[in-house]
């Protein structure tokens, strides 16, 4: 028993090891995989997050009025695995370190994030298309020139025609 007395006496002299949360600060690491956050400006609507999500908490669909792509996220279905953030090519979906998941019962089955991106028009034929995202261009091209900018303002069909004309 003597072995444990030493530990007990030491504990008696030390301050409590628990945090006074919620009345004070608690330890929240920078890397903690908390609630998912979404930045529409970075989203390219590629559907990767929905493909890798094991719990089906994310839905990426074309908007009903055809004006863009919607992104819906259900917090209650999420298992905080971080797969969506890991595979997102532009970091539009990411885990914040917020762990406060309590919500009202009325919000249980509705998406906690209901956002999305709008289509832009092709500068040539005015057809709707997904817009170019800076983060992805930076990965694809070493230098983003005016030529590249012009190319990305065209829809895939017009781009092909333009390239064809140049040949």
């Amino acid at each position: 028993m003597a072995g444990f007395f030493k530990i007990a006496i030491r504990n008696f002299l030390n301050s409590p090891t628990t945090d006074p949360y919620p009345f004070g600060e608690t330890f929240t690491p920078e890397n903690y995989r908390g609630i998912i956050d979404y930045t529409p400006e970075l989203c390219i609507g590629c559907n990767t997050c929905e493909y890798v999500c094991p719990s089906g908490a994310i839905r990426v669909r074309e908007k009903e009025d055809g004006s863009g792509i919607s992104f819906s996220f259900w917090l209650n279905t999420c298992s905080h695995c971080g797969n969506c953030g890991y595979y997102c090519p532009t970091d539009a979906v990411f885990n914040s370190n917020d762990f406060h998941t309590a919500r009202h019962q009325s919000e249980k089955f509705i998406p906690t994030i209901d956002d999305g991106i709008s289509y832009v028009q092709c500068s040539n034929c005015k057809q709707k298309m997904k817009r170019p995202v800076e983060a992805l261009l930076a990965r694809a091209y070493e230098e983003i020139t005016e030529e590249v900018r012009h190319q990305t303002s065209l829809c895939p069909e017009c781009r092909r025609m333009k390239r064809f004309e140049r040949m």
Binding site: Y51, V52, C53, P54, S55, S79, C81, N83, Y87
Partner: peptide, 9 residues
Amino acid sequence: RNFLQNMII
């Protein structure tokens, strides 16, 4: 589930 989802399951 696909191979990537199964890493989590």
